[in-house]
Design a protein around this nucleic acid. Structure first.
Lengths: 237, 237
DNA sequence: TCAAAAGTGTTCAAGCTACACCCATGG
DNA sequence: CCATGGGTGTAGCTTGAACACTTTTGA
């Protein structure tokens, strides 16, 4: 038992993991809760933070314990602390956000306690706690992020075609289709893609395979953060 | 005394408040700590979250208690939870972010316990805890925010000239000077400014005074969030 | 030889940048 | 009448959007 002079909340982490398999839908990793509250409901992976581990460490640990998915980059999303968000008492949850490609992280371990599953984004079940709020915010973050960062780093396999990249963007931004010509021009102009070969055995003209050049990307990102603004003001209003 | 089956961290809030007075420097609101740890050091306003109040409520309450500043909009910034960030034990802090104009919030109450003061951003003292990390992140957020949101809503008095608005942007983005012509064109094109009069008694051609039109801004923001993208992809890299 | 997807050339309009210039006021 | 900051016209270039077209492969 642990005793304190003032009352303290519990602190948890929840992780929103998006997966992409090349199709027209992103997927999200959910678990079925094995215990109360919300037993039997689907929820985001997550759990209580140990006192001797950082928040991000806790997120990765819980994710692996509950779903078997590991070795991914997470980014903090938002912290949820409404007084009554958890029937067990005051629970403050730090939400994390991650992108993975399903080729690298297909295995979803079903431990004895929990069942884990990838759901298409437009077919999510009803969720426990305020997890649908968290997902809503994560969706907004993703849509914003895709505008200024090459999310393909994480969502696509190491080598991919421009067609796959375009399909991914159309999926994430939920648009019919970009103009192929313009998409290619813009992406290639950035210089963050590097040719690595050609497709084999496809029933059409084989596409050039590309990989992301992390170094070039970092240089460009530094320039941006260093104040070399392409436009003085954007007012993307 | 409060007893729990598992150990729990303490949870605090910290608030980064930027103030603007029309000059070439933004200011930040800091308090001098009256107790240990870091007694006598400067720090962000903040404190422990009560179990029956939301996080944002706690942030506003602590801010008013410590500095007398109230009635402002805050936005969540980031949550800091490194294991050893506080010598008192495991303390997780949810940081908030706010913009105010110093005309409306000049009074900085010095309660018996704490001293509060506005510091120019480039003359900040050494800070307690990991508060300089928090401020660094807040600065990044501010620089990003200014690109896509009219921060003048909060930082300027109700009526202002385009010259003042431009001075603000130059201050926040830390650039020498924008081209006046282009700045005016871009801002006015958005339609979020509304003429409300003219300057009086100035030793030069009196400028038109503007105010922000919140309604027009909301409409535009909804359009943007609703998917009407001005450009398909930005890659502001 | 056909279907399918990759990949290119080019036009037109919109937007950004830069520079030069005029305007109104108080001292 | 001048210093000061407000305010405007416009040329030249860059970028974005759109469309039509050619290329390469396996079946």
């Amino acid at each position: 038992m642990y005793t304190y002079e003032y009352p303290r909340p519990s602190v948890t982490v929840d992780i929103v993991v998006y997966g992409y398999d090349g199709g027209k839908q992103l997927k999200m990793l959910l678990i079925e809760r094995g215990g109360e509250p919300f037993k039997g409901h689907w929820a985001l992976p997550g759990g209580f933070v140990d006192l001797d581990e950082d928040l991000e460490t806790a997120a990765l640990r819980e994710l692996e314990e509950e779903t078997g998915v590991k070795d991914l980059f997470v980014e903090q999303l938002y912290t949820y602390g409404a007084v009554n968000r958890d029937p067990r008492g005051r629970v403050i949850s730090v939400a994390y956000f991650s992108l993975v490609n399903l080729q690298d992280h297909p295995a979803v371990a079903s431990s004895d306690a929990t069942k884990a599953e990838w759901f298409p984004l437009n077919e999510l079940p009803e969720l426990a706690f305020d997890h649908s709020d968290i997902i809503k915010k994560a969706n907004e973050r993703l849509a914003a992020k895709v505008r200024y960062q090459p999310i393909g780093f994480e969502l696509l396999p190491a080598e991919f075609t421009l067609g796959q990249l375009q399909q991914l963007y159309e999926t994430v931004l939920n648009v019919e289709s970009f103009n192929k010509r313009n998409f290619r021009t813009r992406i290639l102009r950035t210089g963050i893609l590097e040719e690595v070969g050609r497709q084999q055995n496809v029933a059409h003209r084989p596409a050039v395979l590309y990989k992301f050049n992390q170094e070039t990307y970092k240089k460009l990102a530094e320039q941006r953060d260093g104040g070399v603004l392409r436009r003085a003001l954007d007012f993307e209003i």
